[in-house]
Lab assay of single mutants.
Amino acid sequence: MTYRVRIENADGEVVTIEISADELREKGLTLEELLPPNARIVEVEEVEP
């Protein structure tokens, strides 16, 4: 499974990243732990691999 994640950074700019569930598991991280300081998740969407 892959996630498309929209993130708002500290400057108010919204960027989109895609990350797979396998990648998260391998790194032992959650989506929140990948965020840079002062950023927030705006939207998470599951996409087909």
Rank of each mutant, 00 (worst) to 15 (best):
E8A: 08
I41Y: 03
G28S: 05
A21P: 04
D11P: 03
R6M: 13
E13Q: 13
E43F: 14
I17S: 00
R4T: 03
V14N: 05
V42R: 04
E43H: 14
N9K: 15
E26D: 10
L34F: 14
V15A: 06
V42Q: 05
V47H: 06
E32W: 09
E13C: 14
E18N: 08
E13K: 11
L34W: 15
P36Y: 03
P36N: 03
V15C: 14
E32L: 12
A10R: 06
K27L: 12
V5M: 04
E43N: 12
G12R: 02
E8N: 03
R25P: 01
P49M: 13
D11L: 11
A10D: 11
P49K: 12
V15F: 15
P36L: 04
L34N: 02
E13V: 12
D11N: 12
P36D: 04
R6W: 14
I41K: 03
E23H: 08
I7G: 01
I19M: 03
A39Q: 03
M1H: 12
E33K: 07
L24F: 04
A10Q: 10
T30H: 05
I19W: 03
T16G: 01
E32S: 10
D22P: 02
P37G: 05
V44H: 02
V15G: 03
E18L: 14
E46Y: 14
I7F: 15
R40D: 01
R6G: 03
L24R: 01
K27W: 09
E46C: 13
E46P: 06
P37I: 08
Y3S: 03
Y3Q: 08
L31H: 00
S20D: 07
E26P: 02
L31R: 00
T2W: 13
E33C: 06
N9T: 15
T30M: 06
P36I: 03
A10S: 11
N38Y: 13
E46H: 08
N38S: 06
E13R: 13
D22F: 09
R4F: 13
I17C: 14
N9V: 11
V47E: 03
E13D: 09
E13W: 08
E26W: 09
P36V: 03
Y3K: 07
E23Y: 14
E13T: 15
E33D: 15
N38I: 02
V42H: 03
P49Q: 13
I7H: 02
A21N: 05
S20L: 06
I41D: 01
E46R: 13
E45W: 12
V47Y: 13
L35E: 00
G28C: 06
V15I: 14
E8T: 08
K27P: 01
A21V: 10
N38D: 11
L29D: 01
E45F: 12
L29P: 02
I41E: 01
I7W: 14
E26R: 12
Y3G: 02
I41N: 02
N38L: 08
T16F: 11
I19V: 09
E18W: 15
E48W: 15
A21G: 09
N9R: 13
S20V: 03
L24W: 04
V44C: 12
G28I: 02
T30K: 10
N38P: 04
E26I: 12
L35D: 00
E43C: 14
R25G: 04
K27S: 12
E45Q: 12
R6V: 14
P37N: 06
R25C: 09
V47M: 11
E48P: 14
D11S: 09
V14T: 09
T2I: 15
K27V: 05
A21S: 10
V44S: 02
E33M: 13
E13M: 12
R25Y: 09
L35K: 02
V5C: 05
A10K: 08
L35I: 14
V47K: 05
R25D: 06
I17Y: 07
K27G: 06
G12D: 01
R40T: 06
I41R: 03
V5G: 00
V15Q: 10
E26A: 13
D11G: 06
R4W: 07
I17P: 00
L34E: 01
T16M: 11
S20Q: 07
T2C: 10
V47S: 05
A21D: 06
R40A: 04
K27D: 02
E13G: 09
R4H: 09
E46W: 14
L34I: 12
V44G: 01
N38H: 11
R4K: 09
V15R: 08
R6L: 13
T30D: 04
S20I: 03
D22Q: 13
E26S: 12
A10E: 13
T30I: 05
P36K: 03
Y3C: 10
E32D: 08
I7A: 03
P37C: 05
E13Y: 09
V47D: 03
I17T: 01
P36T: 04
L24H: 01
V42A: 02
P49A: 13
E45T: 13
A21Q: 08
L24S: 01
P49E: 11
V14M: 12
L31F: 07
I41F: 05
I41M: 04
P37W: 03
L29V: 11
E45P: 01
S20N: 08
E46L: 15
L24C: 04
Y3A: 03
E23F: 14
Y3D: 08
E32N: 09
M1V: 15
M1F: 09
D11F: 12
Y3E: 10
P49H: 13
T2Q: 10
N38W: 10
R4P: 05
I7R: 00
E26M: 12
V44D: 01
I19Y: 05
N9E: 04
I17Q: 01
E23S: 07
V42E: 02
E8K: 09
E46I: 15
Y3V: 15
E45K: 10
P37D: 06
G12Y: 02
E8S: 06
L35S: 01
E45C: 10
E33S: 11
K27I: 05
S20Y: 06
R4N: 04
T16H: 04
M1N: 09
A21I: 10
M1C: 14
A21C: 07
E48H: 15
R25Q: 08
I17R: 02
T16W: 14
E13L: 12
I7S: 01
R6H: 14
P49S: 13
L24A: 02
R4V: 13
T16A: 03
L31V: 04
P37F: 06
L34V: 12
V15M: 12
R40G: 02
V47N: 04
M1D: 05
G12I: 00
E8L: 14
N9H: 11
S20E: 04
E18P: 01
T2D: 14
T30Y: 03
P37M: 08
P49Y: 13
V44Y: 06
L29Q: 07
S20P: 06
R40H: 07
I41V: 08
E26V: 10
V5K: 00
P37H: 08
E32I: 12
R25W: 09
D22W: 10
E45H: 09
T2H: 15
V44I: 14
V42F: 05
I41A: 02
T2V: 15
